Computed example of a mutant assay.
Amino acid sequence: MDLEKQPQKSAVPAEPAAEPTIRASDADRDRIADILRDALAEGRIDAEEHGERIDAVYRAKTVGELEPLVQDLPAARGPHREPSPRQAYAYGPEDAAGMAPADKLIAVFSSTTRKGRWRVGRRTNAFSLFGSVEIDLTEAIFTQRLTTINAASVFGNVEVRVPENITLRGGGTGVFGNFEVDTLEATDPEAPVVVINGYAVFGNVEARPKRGRFIADLHAKARKHMGH
């Protein structure tokens, strides 16, 4: 038998096999969340499916778990996509690089409060150890559609309050503690979306609407922002 005519097998194994096991970073999750946000705004997915996929995004531990969530959507291939006119109209200019560091609220045997008129970033990390963190978004300024709050409480309390007319989603783990998110679905398709994730160990994490508080009309704000 002429061995030279036999098909040669490649000695190099397929490279993508290891990639799905790479641990997902915050930047990886934010990239997928941005694609889902655009898909919702363009009507490619509805609010219910967006919520299900966003929940899966922030529970994912590896890159392999993230990619299937957007495989049926026109994903961004480059490092950044310019905001669509609709996004720019509703929220004004976003962080161009999309890489602003997360805000941090920490309470260790103390209390920390963020409330009043303040500009909300893409991500906020809240941690309480024998302390209390209060995040009040009822008068906050949202400059992006999706806001993620990662809340962790150990023998402490993290409390988030939002306006009644935004979308609130999320979920976490309570270990001898309480992790509770009162979900909301806004009727306005341009309303902000706040996602709460994290855990409570012998503590409490709670996110719910503040009755009687509403975010001002987004379109009116945008016209004022743009000088119309």
Rank of each mutant, 00 (worst) to 15 (best):
V181A: 02
G171D: 04
E19S: 05
S111H: 08
D182L: 13
G198N: 06
T187G: 05
H219W: 02
T147P: 04
I106Q: 07
G227R: 01
F127Y: 12
D30K: 03
H225T: 09
A126F: 07
A96T: 09
L129D: 06
S110P: 06
V12W: 00
A97C: 07
H225Q: 10
V195W: 11
Y58Q: 07
N157F: 15
N178A: 11
S84E: 09
M226G: 06
E94I: 10
A11R: 08
H225L: 15
P7A: 15
V12F: 01
A39I: 02
L3Q: 12
L137P: 11
G203E: 03
A126C: 13
R53T: 03
E134Y: 14
P101A: 08
T62S: 02
A11P: 01
D26H: 09
V57Q: 03
S153G: 04
P16W: 08
M99Q: 08
S10V: 02
I32Y: 02
G131T: 06
P74K: 08
G131V: 05
G131Y: 04
D38F: 03
T138K: 00
T138A: 01
T113L: 06
N125A: 06
H50R: 07
N178S: 13
Q71Y: 11
A200T: 04
A88M: 13
V201L: 12
G203P: 01
P13K: 04
D55R: 05
P74A: 05
L3D: 07
R122K: 15
M99D: 10
A220Y: 01
M99T: 08
K210W: 09
I54M: 14
D72F: 01
T187M: 09
V162K: 06
K221H: 14
Q87E: 13
E15V: 14
R29C: 05
A60L: 01
V205H: 09
V201F: 09
E134G: 15
H228M: 15
E67D: 06
P20N: 01
A220S: 05
G98T: 05
P68D: 05
A152D: 05
L66S: 05
P74Q: 03
L168I: 06
A100L: 08
L73A: 00
Q144K: 11
D95G: 07
R53I: 02
A97D: 15
R81Y: 10
V154Q: 03
T62V: 00
I135D: 12
F109S: 12
F109N: 06
L137D: 10
P7G: 12
P20W: 00
L69W: 06
T143E: 05
A75S: 10
D46H: 09
N204S: 14
T143L: 11
F127E: 07
Q71F: 13
G98M: 04
G177H: 04
A126T: 12
V108W: 01
A76W: 07
I45L: 15
G203D: 07
A207M: 00
V193I: 12
T124P: 12
T183Q: 14
T62Q: 00
D38I: 10
D30C: 00
M1E: 12
G64K: 00
A222Y: 06
V12K: 02
N150T: 14
A107S: 00
I141A: 11
K210D: 11
P20Y: 03
E185V: 10
L66T: 00
F130T: 15
L129F: 14
E164V: 06
A100S: 13
